[in-house]
Design a protein around this nucleic acid. Sequence first.
DNA 1: GTCTATAGTATGATAGAC
DNA 2: GTCTATCATACTATAGAC
Lengths: 213, 213
Amino acid sequence: MSSVSQTSTERLASGERIPAAERREQILAAASRVFGERGYAGATTDQVAQAAGISQPYVVRMFGSKENLFVEVLERALDKLMTVFRTVIEESAAADETTDQRSARLGAAYADLISDRGILLSLMQAFTMGHEPTIGKVARDGFLAIYSLLRTEGRFTADHVVDFLAHGMLFNTLIALRMTDGIDDNALVSELVACTFGAKLDTVLDAVARAHP
Amino acid sequence: MSSVSQTSTERLASGERIPAAERREQILAAASRVFGERGYAGATTDQVAQAAGISQPYVVRMFGSKENLFVEVLERALDKLMTVFRTVIEESAAADETTDQRSARLGAAYADLISDRGILLSLMQAFTMGHEPTIGKVARDGFLAIYSLLRTEGRFTADHVVDFLAHGMLFNTLIALRMTDGIDDNALVSELVACTFGAKLDTVLDAVARAHP
DNA sequence: GTCTATAGTATGATAGAC
DNA sequence: GTCTATCATACTATAGAC
């Protein structure tokens, strides 16, 4: 009864030794949440360690430095985004959908992905760090890779991609601001939110309710 | 020859006593830059003090706490934005312009305002802090006040305002990412930047060149 | 209105045992 | 693969002089 039916949380609590690859993902997921809520500078390696259920020096040991940990968190978020978009584009192409249909599917997939606040906020943090030599370059290259994916594989016009990205950035802002919390109290808020998310509103509200009930 | 022809920088260097109101604005301008570049948590009150040419304890003394200093920086940025938008709307109404003309003017005014990286980045930092009780509320209320201004005094439809804000958020992202720096080296970057900023491209590039030559 | 000195705390990273 | 102990540094905020 030692390892077969245990969840990774149970294994964490028991002080068990876990393969490095699995531990890495645990730490990255925890770091994503912590960096998202506190910002790059505000997050501490100790908070990440506690969220992952291990010791602070082990976090530093495994990733070399706090900066490098953030870079890996960012790359993980960008990877997930690229993978989701690529999948949607392939499915859409296979189904011979119109540009508008593809765009709507991508928007829904994006709304779904950023319902993980850690991913959303880590990306937003990175966007404010263009002046940092290392992190800034990763963020720029990642943003550009997404533009490139939509433009070429997605076969959108430049105008269309820019429009798509613009609305994505507004999604980000409203969710990060927790603007969706005031939706019942204020007519202006609910108009703004409804109009921004359109058909994706339910996805978003469900995710918000799950994140902070 | 003591005070008549001196710039405020000269007066700073000379250790002169300066009225509180003027000092406040000096500190807020400095804090806007520092908070923008390093983030709320990453910025230190000492960095702000040095940027303003005064001592660290005096910064704390004058604003009570680091958090309160950030709130005032944020409110200053939001005030400037509201003032600029209100002015443009009034001018546009007086000239009987169309909705599209008003929208273009507002976009140009916005591009001009956020060419102050301090303002741009302090706003973006605040947008990631929706979960902070004090700062989050100021940020939400500020965002909503802008929506309200455009919707009512600006007489735009909800869809129009959302579209305007969405493109504004993409402006923010590209400038903060310093994406404009790679405009000469990469065809995809220059396409993205050109298509995002359109006629406002020159304003933006000029501002960037002034900010980090 | 502005400074110096400093208390009290928290941080990232390293050393080294198991 | 993981921990405990710890160093060196840096931070906000207060006290109190001028």
